[in-house]
């Protein structure tokens, strides 16, 4: 029972983006289209799960003093792997996400989970935690990206979903739209909590 909770908590109750407001940079930067959002979510989830696995496995060998640098090396390695693999197999997506792939290293969600969870829990729990958090992050990205893409381009995943008479609100896919949509969504989450 509690094992399942490790998985589900990241999706709603402790959603890294909406509830904990972590990892905002990539969320705002790549959410101008749903396709980019899914790509970014997948890349971050991969890094989260695998760095959680590794850190959970090697945590016994790492002296406390150097745990943060060690975690950073583990995370950076997985980020580099994702970077290289994406460039080889999905070059177009890699180009769209650009700088934000290497910057997964400094995404507070990943180091945060390594430090707060994987460094203290066993393998199974760490994997579930990584998956849950990754999924929560991806879902948040998709929600924001859907709103921005539909309002700003009248499209969803590149397909027209609104009638031709709808004039796209360009601002939604430009930089200010990211902040405005995010702010309104956070307000909405607060409203629900009350």
């Amino acid at each position: 029972m509690s094992v399942i909770k490790e998985f589900t908590k990241g999706i709603v109750k402790e959603n890294p983006v909406f509830v904990m407001a972590l990892g905002l940079c990539p969320v705002l930067a790549v959410s101008s289209s749903v396709e980019n959002a899914i790509g970014m979510g997948a890349a971050a989830t991969f890094v989260l799960v695998f760095s959680n696995i590794f850190i959970s496995l090697i945590k016994g060998f790492i002296p406390r003093k150097i745990r943060i640098p060690s975690y950073i090396v583990v995370i950076a390695s997985f980020v580099t792997i994702v970077d290289m693999v994406m460039e080889a197999y999905v070059p177009a997506l890699h180009k769209n996400l650009g700088l934000f792939i290497p910057l997964i290293v400094v995404n507070c969600i990943i180091l945060g989970r390594a430090e707060a969870f994987a460094g203290k829990n066993n393998l199974i729990r760490s994997i579930l935690d990584g998956f849950g958090m990754g999924l929560g992050f991806t879902l948040a990205l998709i929600v924001i990206a859907s709103i921005r893409e539909i309002l700003g381009a009248g499209q969803f995943l590149g397909y027209n979903v609104l009638p031709a008479t709808f004039k796209p609100m360009l601002v939604a896919i430009l930089a200010p739209g990211a902040f405005l949509v995010m702010g309104l969504l956070m307000g909405l989450m607060n409203l629900k909590k009350k």
Partner: peptide
């Protein structure tokens, strides 16, 4: 320990 971790990581990469 740090050296080992970094070496292994570089090798894999």
């Amino acid at each position: 320990v740090l050296l080992v971790i970094t070496t292994v990581a570089s090798g894999i990469l």
